[in-house]
């Protein structure tokens, strides 16, 4: 059984990723975040908490570094001798980058995290045994572990609050890893509707919670292989290609004026999130 299976589908089993010749089809979910538009208001983070049933761990556990914010706003300060340090504040919304070649996937002993057909980095809660190797190997450290049994913790979810939980999203018990899913529950619903109508998901038909709640519209999300999508257009305009660890535009000697970049691109995780660099005062 298995030897014949091996021989028949050999080329399929030796297929590596990402490659030009066989991109994701018909979906490849991707994002781009305009840091120039980001005001650091944290609305995305709160929307994410609400949408994805993320436990609010409380002050004490937060101090222990056990917070669960799938979407976090990182603050960096430019210490260049300004009168008010706050003026130099920069924000970076950080969530799972849904890498095309995710370092977390190879190291999971039980294969609880995989690359899906539509280009997501999935996390199978039921399969996770909690070895936390994925987190150790994640360069972005965007994976969050359930250190306690939050669903049964009255301080985290008082009984009356259970009505507030999103029924489309499971609550995670103690001992499993979780992370941003690109609101996979919304994607699945949209795909299912589209399929029943015999088409693919249209641009704008599905939004992630963070995108939906961003007051400045800094986040755009969509199907990267759909030429009509905003994400596709942005990536193309910025000349960022998903399967490259070094973009052609950066190889030019004088560098590039374009703002698009991906974090840790040179480590070859091939992230699906492109950031648009903030326009600096010095550059204006």
């Amino acid at each position: 059984m298995s030897v014949s299976n091996l021989l028949e589908n050999w080329s399929q089993f030796r297929h590596t990723h990402p490659v030009d010749d066989k991109p994701h089809d018909p979906y490849k979910w991707a994002m781009s975040i305009d840091l120039d538009a980001c005001t650091g208001c944290n609305a995305c983070s709160i929307a994410c908490y609400a949408e994805n049933n993320i436990p609010v761990v409380g002050k004490e556990r937060f101090q222990h570094g056990q917070q669960m914010h799938w979407m976090r706003i990182e603050r960096y300060w430019d210490e260049d001798g300004r009168e008010f340090a706050d003026q130099g504040a920069q924000f970076l919304p950080m969530m799972c980058q849904q890498c095309e070649a995710a370092p977390c996937e190879t190291v999971c002993p039980v294969a609880a995290t995989n690359h899906t057909a539509d280009g997501l980095n999935s996390q199978v809660y039921n399969r996770c045994v909690g070895s936390r190797y994925c987190s150790a190997n994640c360069p972005f450290k965007v994976r969050y572990f359930n250190w306690y049994d939050y669903p049964t913790d009255d301080a985290v979810w008082p009984a009356e609050m259970s009505q507030q939980l999103n029924p489309d999203v499971t609550v995670r018990s103690k001992g499993v890893m979780e992370k941003c899913t690109f609101c996979v529950q919304r994607l699945t619903a949209a795909k299912s509707v589209a399929k029943s109508e015999g088409r693919i998901v249209r641009e704008g038909e599905v939004q992630t919670a963070c995108q939906q709640s961003c007051p400045t519209g800094a986040i755009s999300f969509g199907n990267l292989v759909n030429p009509e999508s905003r994400v596709h257009k942005q990536w193309q305009a910025q000349q960022v290609e998903i399967d490259k660890d070094k973009q052609t535009k950066d190889e030019k000697e004088e560098g590039s004026e374009l703002r698009g970049y991906r974090i840790f691109e040179d480590m070859r995780p091939y992230p699906s999130v492109m950031y648009l660099e903030r326009v600096r005062e010095s550059a204006v």
């Binding site: 059984m1 298995s2 089993f13 297929h15 590596t16 190879t106 999971c108 899906t116 091939y270």
Partner: peptide, 22 residues
């Protein structure tokens, strides 16, 4: 070798970390 490769091939056709399935 054959148990492992066979297991990998029979398991869901899911890529991990961009590496080949076998």
């Amino acid at each position: 070798f054959f148990l492992i490769s066979g297991g990998q091939a029979n398991f869901y056709m899911q890529l991990k970390g961009g590496k080949p399935i076998v």
